[in-house]
Design a protein around this nucleic acid. Sequence first.
DNA 1: TATTGTTATACTCTATAACTATA
DNA 2: TATAGTTATAGAGTATAACAATA
Lengths: 141, 141
Amino acid sequence: MATENDDLVDALAQISFATMAVLSKAAADNDLSLTQLRVLGILRDRRMRMAALAGFLGLEKSTLSGLVDRAERRGLLERAPSAGDGRAVDVFITPVGAAHAARVHASIRQALSPLTNELAPAEQRRLQSLLEKILPPNVPS
Amino acid sequence: MATENDDLVDALAQISFATMAVLSKAAADNDLSLTQLRVLGILRDRRMRMAALAGFLGLEKSTLSGLVDRAERRGLLERAPSAGDGRAVDVFITPVGAAHAARVHASIRQALSPLTNELAPAEQRRLQSLLEKILPPNVPS
DNA sequence: TATTGTTATACTCTATAACTATA
DNA sequence: TATAGTTATAGAGTATAACAATA
């Protein structure tokens, strides 16, 4: 069952663990979980209904309720009735939340660059183009 | 502050989110969390003391106690007194745990290969070697 | 009846602090 | 005194099930 690209799959998994460790730490340093960071990233440039956002994140509605509760309590997000459907609720980012997200994203770039700087410029370009080839289409932010 | 390798950093982050989603799902399908999966992967070929394993994972000792408790209750791991230091405790994987881990790893490879198969064989080799260059040294399994 | 969202409940993961036993 | 590990406690993230309000 093992094919010759098992090593590539392993390398991908390992690089992902290492990257996610960096992302988690950057988020944690700014008092955000990885999920909160994802939410802020998604809402950076749009307002969404709860159900749509939950679907986007692959989470249950009830999970998102708690997530938004906590973020709203901290002033990072806000809720408002959705126009047109009396049942629906929109969520959107606040200026405070946006500033927070921007700060974390900057520190992520900084924390990750030592990794990428292991490579010569030409190799960096090559790696980027290979990664972009295998990247699934609709990954937000 | 933005440098020309921001796009590479972004690609790395995105590929990591996509990969981790696959890993999480494969683990969840087998009733394991990502952390449990990591633990099983690490213990696949070694026996470790609690403190060493916690350090390896970047977790507190108390966190690992709970993690090992639950895995032990399910028959995936076992504890035993460590030879030579009366305070220390070794953890190791059981045959059941090893079988479990092997199953998840197989399904991860399977789930990830559509991604890597977007590339021609030569590109796969190139990507693997680039990833291995930037991989931090002591990432296990 | 079906959909949107919240609440209640339960479990896992995580950390901090206090504790026991050994070194 | 310092180190190894556990326990107690608390909070976040997650899901399932039951519910209210609207469609």
